[in-house]
Simulated scan of single mutants.
Amino acid sequence: MKKVAIQGIQGSNHHIVAQNYYGADIELYEYLSFDALVDSLVRHTSEQAIMAIENTIAGSIIPNYALIDKYNLYISGEYYLNIHHHLMALPGQTIADIKEVCSHPMALLQCKEFFKQYEHIKLIEDTDTAGVAKRIKEQNLKGVAAIAPKIAADIFGLEVLEDGIQTIKNNATRFVFLQTSQPKNGIDQIDKASLKFELDHKRGSLAAVLNVMSDCKLNLTKIQSLPKIETPWKYAFFVDVTFNAYEDYAKAKSIVAIMAEDFKILGEYKNGRI
């Protein structure tokens, strides 16, 4: 059985991705923070880890880019999950009975418009969506609700008070699969790559790199900059590119490796968007 680490517990969105991607034949390791998740990989407690990296509403999870870079992790694949947030509590309660709603900060952010109509409810940040659902059940917490996937209500015996409370219904999160060794993805199956490089803060440096990618027929699907804290006015750029021909990508990365500093291939894999 493959040892797979997730952020959160059973019933979380990371758990759903694990089931959808790997199937049921896995040994699941649950961690309440992304730092602990990465540590399990580095210490070889787990073989692969699933990490949320960006959301269509909340945007990039910037600290996770830094974790992938710092610990030299490799992206072996990606998965896009449509996110459906459900409000759940102990059976027999209504929204009028709920005084507090606890959930992960991202879930609260994605549902904030829904709660504007319920001024009596206090929103409280917590470490995990499904973790709150589990605590409500175990501690018999009345007047407290969780925002979590429907699977959490099924697992912990809670009642769904409202379905699909996310602000934007077309809400998706991109997850990446991480490991410490370079994946053995075949060239014929690779049509996306995640790259990292550094540039000086001077006119035209980024534009020159992007022009190379364009000339080599790469489609830039993501760009994220992070300042180099130890080197003022220098930035690291994380980019995702897709391509039709591996030869075009190979040409582009060889040129960018010369133009930029600290060039790193974070992953070469199959595009998860169909």
Rank of each mutant, 00 (worst) to 15 (best):
I223V: 11
S205H: 05
V160P: 02
I255C: 07
L226F: 11
S40N: 02
N140C: 10
G143I: 10
D97T: 08
V212G: 14
S46P: 04
T127G: 09
T231Y: 03
I9Y: 01
T127A: 14
Y65L: 12
T45S: 03
S60A: 12
A260W: 03
D200F: 14
L141V: 12
T221V: 10
F156E: 06
K228H: 06
L41A: 00
L67T: 14
S46I: 00
L37Q: 03
P227V: 07
F263Y: 04
Y22P: 08
M259I: 08
E247V: 05
Y235R: 13
K222A: 10
V132L: 09
F114T: 07
K184M: 15
M1N: 02
K264M: 07
D191N: 05
H84I: 09
L81H: 07
I121M: 03
A193N: 00
V256M: 02
V256P: 03
I223Q: 15
Q224D: 15
K234N: 14
A260G: 02
Y31T: 13
M213Q: 01
A252G: 14
E230D: 13
L109F: 14
P232R: 01
K169S: 07
Q179S: 09
P227D: 05
L28Y: 01
S76C: 14
F197Y: 02
N140K: 13
E268H: 00
N64P: 10
L108F: 04
D191C: 00
K202D: 15
G272D: 08
L158A: 10
L81F: 00
E230C: 03
E119G: 12
S214N: 12
L81P: 02
K134W: 05
N271E: 09
E100I: 08
I68R: 01
S40D: 12
L87I: 06
K112P: 05
R135D: 11
A107G: 05
N72T: 05
L28K: 01
D69A: 11
N72E: 10
P149D: 15
V17T: 10
K116W: 11
M106Y: 00
A36N: 09
Y65D: 06
I265R: 15
L226S: 14
I61R: 05
L37D: 07
Q10H: 05
Q139T: 14
D154V: 11
I83M: 10
T221C: 06
M259D: 12
E30P: 05
K169F: 06
L32G: 03
T242D: 09
T94E: 06
H14A: 15
